[in-house]
Design a protein around this nucleic acid. Sequence first.
DNA 1: GTCTATATGGAGATAGAC
DNA 2: GTCTATCTCCATATAGAC
Lengths: 191, 191
Amino acid sequence: MTRQQRSIDKHQRLLQAAEAVVHRQGYHLTTLADIAREAHVPVGGIYYYFRTKESMVEQIITARMAELTRRMEEWERDRPPLARLEALVDIWREDSEIDARYGCPIGSLCYELSRAGARMAGLAARPLLLLREWSEKQFRILGAADPGGGAEHLVMALQGASLVGNAFHDPGAIVRETDRLKTWLRQRVAN
Amino acid sequence: MTRQQRSIDKHQRLLQAAEAVVHRQGYHLTTLADIAREAHVPVGGIYYYFRTKESMVEQIITARMAELTRRMEEWERDRPPLARLEALVDIWREDSEIDARYGCPIGSLCYELSRAGARMAGLAARPLLLLREWSEKQFRILGAADPGGGAEHLVMALQGASLVGNAFHDPGAIVRETDRLKTWLRQRVAN
DNA sequence: GTCTATATGGAGATAGAC
DNA sequence: GTCTATCTCCATATAGAC
């Protein structure tokens, strides 16, 4: 194993630790020391991989976009459009326990960074934008009326479910809303 | 005007300033100095009215609950149940500009305080709980099926609309979702 | 009751040894 | 490339004069 190899590993380890800790504690309450501890890296050593705290969150978001894109491409390969949208909703259903505890990692970061300057706010909104545009594309393929409105509602419902489920610490609330959403999806497509 | 009178005024001024600044900047990014400046009060002078930053946000939430309750009682006096729910949705419609800029003051605080200890998280969730329970009561009066589920969806939709509208800085998105919600409301009640 | 001055603590970030 | 030691800044909170 080369030096460079180890370095990449450590970068990955730090990034995964950062993602986990920021999800649990939120951006503002997370210190770089918290992340260092989680990744078993000395405090100051972080600055070799993340120039600033902001660049760290940038990398989290970039990784999240890549992971989302990967899943969407997978669904586009092996499912019909309606099942793709249901698969998307099922992510929230499956993550209901963790999101009820810590909120949706995408949405909670949007709110936290929305006040941290236009650049950071715009970055945080990108995964949400990806979700909306990809959903709109699926609705369009399905021939649904108002695909843009459908996609908008879908993303809003998922985010609202996560926020309220988190506020009440109630994973059941998230599950119930995903069920309602899937019923709504099938009705919408039937027309 | 007595001394006590002036003191109450200053307390009110500080509380209103705190509410406005925390809405604009979020809890974590707001310093007590920001609030003092907004209220034209010297920095240290805050601590006579707010023991700690946490007690300040407690008072904001308490005031918000009182205001919500006041409005709900007013609607219960002079509107039929369906119009009460529409009036609730219209609050978000009317605040779409400001919420697209700064997020829903209730929901964004829920996410921010959800990691700040169980006590603070529970406090932040109370306005949301009030909204859900009051809405459920209206659905029940209307004889709608699953009033609890209806209320849950209503609150989630409003919060999701605010979060997404804020992320995209798009008041139109919030307005569109309130329109969809009102259509949904009338359909639900028709059954 | 009100304000000034200051203590305290902790965060992000850097310099430089290894 | 990596880690230690440290610097600097600034926010909360307090002590005490008025």
